[in-house]
Design a protein around this nucleic acid. Structure first.
Lengths: 238, 238
DNA sequence: CGCGTTCTTGACTGCTTTCAAAGATGGTGG
DNA sequence: CCACCATCTTTGAAAGCAGTCAAGAACGCG
């Protein structure tokens, strides 16, 4: 709220990883070290890593794994947020990684002997697969309204892990066109869907800040379950 | 062709893994050992692993990762074929693993010191992610005809790795309803789409055997690139 | 041969796209 | 401080792809 105030100096990426598993001092040092190698990528630019690194870590901003077709169509397959890992290897066909907003990245740190950091990364990979599964289900069986709200619910939970939410609200720095590429819709229809949701008092979105009015009711309606409820218990069992 | 003839006694799962990376004798022994613990799962039954094992290996048959909704809708998120690994952990919400045909599974073997086997499993995981990405792109941006043919192309390539193809043909033991749950369509529309493809001489499908008439032309039309062309080169660079 | 599952067909509905153009919005330079 | 431009959002009308509902045909299995 008050722009001058910053609760901690901890980066959202570290916040997220610490939420996935308690990280030891060695791991925190490794994260600190690697963050010193941070690099900025401007919006709309492709995200790349130095040739020595095959895995990167997002420190801030929004990026996406995207598939392009020769006729101009595109589909965003996965959104990358602060604290997410991304592999640069593979990508045989036209799968690219693109900054949706200005993004800061760094190479993934060596895990070393820190079991907490290793567990956090392992958990991060498990979650990523879960998000891919969910996105498939979303695109396969949900209509526009449900696709959008389901994704917003998931994104809110993901941002919450990184400490980037404000209650039921969070910053959503995407255009409706990007949302369309993500949800397998047209921007026109995303626009109409948003109007519906605003009219029905499901959400507010202005000035880049989105707020879900009643996430609980929404989650019930969508059969939505937070990805982390189950996994957090497992982590605590370490 | 001649049913009495079997080229080798090697299981399709071993064929696939060997294609991903050259496996040493130790790895082959481990695979042999673990296959002795094989277990059958009847069609339509849920696939589970003994509590000690978190990762399984499909030896034969077709299985699927499925999401169910309370109103009866379902979406198949990923198909598991011979030689595929599957993790049983996670699955916080209603993600289950179901046998689409009779399936044989076993626990994933310990990798031990066999680098080849480790590489094969690593490669298998990389490919699985790629298949998830592709399925997202398919559901997000392709129409019914392209969805179906694109998936058939991919499935043919995957089966080819396990030595389960016959030129451009392969056994496809799924119902149209299952195909619909996989492609985010209704079985009625899958049926109509298949009729189109048969009429236009794109494919033949009878008696459980499907044949693509001109996979090359199809791949060109769909911007389809085999998942393994790029990765095989990388593997050979080990 | 009989029954259940799977496939096929028709008519109608509806969600989403397409095409086109008019408003906002925000940042930049004069 | 305002004009200006590019980008983004909004709106309308029409067309299309896929879904729904229902019923009959074909198939495969015991």
């Amino acid at each position: 709220m008050t722009p001058a105030f910053r609760p901690t100096d901890i980066s959202p990426a570290v916040t997220r990883l610490s939420a996935l598993a308690p990280i030891g001092s060695e791991g925190l040092a490794a994260l600190d070290e690697v963050q010193r190698q941070r690099r900025k990528v401007a919006a709309h630019r492709e995200v790349t890593l130095g040739s020595g690194n095959r895995v990167g870590l997002v420190l801030s901003g929004w990026a996406a794994r995207v598939r392009h077709w020769s006729d101009g169509r595109r589909q965003i397959m996965h959104v990358l947020l602060a604290g997410d890992l991304f592999d640069m290897e593979q990508a045989p066909d036209s799968v690219s990684t693109i900054a949706l907003t200005p993004v800061e990245i760094c190479p993934m740190p060596q895990v070393g002997a820190d079991e907490g950091l290793a567990a956090a990364f392992a958990q991060s990979r498990v979650l990523e697969r879960l998000y891919l599964f969910r996105h498939i289900a979303r695109l396969g069986r949900l209509n526009a309204v449900d696709r959008l709200t389901d994704w917003l619910l998931e994104t809110r939970d993901r941002l919450a892990l990184a400490g980037l939410t404000n209650g039921n609200g969070f910053g959503l720095p995407l255009t409706q066109e990007t949302l369309a590429d993500l949800l397998g819709l047209t921007s026109v229809h995303v626009n109409r869907t948003l109007q519906l949701l605003r009219r029905d008092n499901v959400l507010e979105w202005s000035g880049g800040a989105l707020r879900l009015i009643d996430p609980v009711a929404l989650a019930r309606h969508l059969d939505y379950q937070p990805a982390h409820a189950g996994t957090r218990q497992r982590v605590s069992g370490f």
